[in-house]
Design a protein around this nucleic acid. Structure first.
Lengths: 215, 215
DNA sequence: ATGAATACTGTATATTTTTACAGTATAAAT
DNA sequence: ATTTATACTGTAAAAATATACAGTATTCAT
């Protein structure tokens, strides 16, 4: 018997526990559960022991309210890779990955975001409205995109180190590269751009446009 | 007296409670706290009552482990908008938003992701390796980008409805639009692309550049 | 058909946990 | 100078909680 199956009564019990914690933010006592489910305390106890054994929660004996829900695995968004024609597209087997936001977002504690404005990075496919994730702790290697502060002005550019100088290159021939001394006081790399997210539905785009006009 | 000041002893108590919950995932009893802090239960009680009054936690009398921490605001990634020159860039006041992933990702329960491959959507700035978020529940309006199944083949295109027909337009003049009957059995819209995320670490950028040159 | 797990009831009892009452001492506030 | 809040101690009692033991009835796989 795989440890994953719960009986009806156990499911009901688990549900009860969840609801209690949801409402009170601390776990219930056996007797409270017994009362709401209108069964004997020992019935409750049996179920909690079973649920603990099956790893749906942790039941600590001898301790009042010694119940801890196992946190459900963070449900990632399934990611389907491209598959050869003829195969059913969206099926378990085609999930090549799941997207757990943490993996992208929580890399560094002081990660921050900046919106892109203007077309200076258009050849790097960064457009107005894109949200960039910037990691201030990451070391800037040649060729990465950085957010830098040049004379008080924040700017997004490709980063190249050339000896004691730094070249900040826009991804648009319309604009000229900035070359500046690495230790110039008016220059500071705020962080390396490690990711980008872009809203693509109509509503989001519209609301962004409004924001743009206002600013 | 503003309700925000805590005495030394109260701070210590709050810290203890936090640590206990961090470790056990359920709240402590008064006596447990008293024991670890080596004070009398009633000292603990006094502090809990004070902490409740000052809204640092909720203390429910007559209930074992009736302690609930007030949850701190979810710490999102701060997003800095572009600011006029001269202003300090990264300061509290410049945070125009915070990124709470849920707002982007959890819109619909059965949201899924697909990786982009190829250059058929390059004028919509979608490149190989981009991860698209697709909402199968969202209604496809004209002009949105959809993931559709055409004769068993998944494809990413602009969506336009033209009477009883549907026009799927690639964002690249190299490729031709697909026009198909709305109710054609070999055609199905899997969902609307509502967002996109792209990793921008060095590897990605390099492979993007290589791909760009090749195309 | 039969042992094992499930799903309970009921009555006690042990233990844990909270509260109540009565103080003492110190620091801050009016 | 005197109240008021803080920060405790100590003992005892009340209550809330968990467990133990002894059953019964039902389901379920072998």
């Amino acid at each position: 018997m795989s440890a994953e199956t719960l009986t009806k009564a156990q499911q009901r019990m688990l549900k009860m526990v969840r609801e209690y914690i949801e409402e009170n933010h601390f776990p219930p006592t056996l007797s409270e559960l017994a009362k709401t489910l209108d069964v004997n305390v020992n019935a409750v106890r049996d179920h909690l022991l079973a649920l603990d054994r099956k790893k749906f929660l942790r039941y600590v004996p001898n301790i009042s309210r010694g119940i801890e829900l196992m946190q459900e695995k963070p449900k990632g968004i399934p990611i389907y890779g491209y598959v050869p024609a003829g195969h059913p597209f969206m099926s378990q087997e085609n999930i090549v990955d799941t997207f757990e936001v943490q993996r992208y977002i929580s890399a560094s504690d002081d990660m921050f975001g900046v919106y892109v404005r203007g077309d200076s990075m258009k050849d790097a496919q960064l457009a107005t409205g894109d949200l960039l994730f910037v990691d201030p702790k990451r070391d800037a290697q040649n060729g990465v995109i950085v957010v830098a502060l040049v004379e008080g002005e924040p700017t997004v550019k490709w980063f190249y180190r050339e000896g004691s100088m730094v070249r900040l290159v826009p991804a648009n021939k319309k604009y000229k590269p900035i070359v500046i001394a690495r230790h110039d006081e008016s220059f500071k790399v705020l962080g390396v751009v490690v990711g980008m997210i872009r809203a693509l539905d109509k509503q989001r785009i519209d609301s962004f446009m409004k924001y743009k006009k206002a600013s």
